[in-house]
Design a protein around this nucleic acid. Structure first.
Lengths: 135, 135
DNA sequence: CTTGAATCTCACATGGGTGTCAGATTCTAC
DNA sequence: GTAGAATCTGACACCCATGTGAGATTCAAG
């Protein structure tokens, strides 16, 4: 698939996709004329990159960590990466705790709000209850 | 306490602390001469702001969501905030999942690496095992 | 072929969070 | 008082991810 389709299917702008490639996060073959050509597996990879970006990691960190997600099996990371990995793991753990804490607070507020306005809720309110189920 | 001490104790630069105040995230009284004066409770608040910043939220979002963390008891949020809250909750949940996934991968890689180099590990390697305990 | 959509590269701009510098004012300790 | 440290405001600069525009090239359909 080419960059337009990848963009539509991932929500990342072509500009961002090219940038991810420049930074070594994704790769592409090129058509005879020089157009980027992506395999299906790039879809999931881009999704993951965007997810991690949204979770506060920067492109350089994601570039370093992504290989740990794919090909978990083959090849240890270079041993001098271990400290870096542990440090990043700690950062990740802290962010998780922070977000969980925030989510609990949101749940609390959403619940109370839903309880009160429960009788006359409109369409978007229903989603509140549904969203709460994903816990 | 004044801005210097708050900066030292939170790790946030005075510049950032003033910015947080401009954006309505923290508040301060002023000394007769105009210097900012913070209460002890600001410490935890700044920590939380920085944690959420590191977890990918921006200042505007944190400003909107922080009241849900503090004063959970008094005052519902304005009803027209509920949709926003639910949307943010979803974002938070997605980030948590993303980070958990990444952490599992990191654990897997760290474990393998630690197993292999287990016999000749140095000081920083020990922390790897310790860090793994916080799961 | 030709034509219009898509893509290419390159450059410049923007927004959010932060760093840094300048010059003035305030605080603290002698 | 006075000196030195800390803080004030305001402006400018930087980084990073992304937007945007120009101008050239390629692709796909008639």
């Amino acid at each position: 698939m080419r960059i337009g389709e990848l963009s539509r299917r991932t929500g990342a702008s072509p500009r961002s996709l090219r940038h991810y490639e420049d930074q070594g996060l994704i790769s592409s073959r090129r058509s005879p004329g020089g157009h980027r050509e992506y395999g299906e597996e790039t879809l999931e990879r881009v999704d993951r990159v965007r997810g991690l970006l949204g979770a506060g990691l920067n492109l350089a960190t994601i570039r370093d960590l992504l290989p740990c997600l794919y090909a978990r099996e083959r090849g240890e990371p270079a041993p001098d990466l271990l400290d870096h990995l542990c440090a990043e793991r700690e950062r990740v753990t802290r962010s998780i705790h922070e977000l969980e804490h925030m989510r609990e607070a949101l749940d609390s507020v959403i619940h109370r709000s839903a309880d009160v306005g429960g009788t006359l809720v409109g369409g978007s309110r229903v989603e509140a209850a549904a969203t709460l189920a994903d816990k």
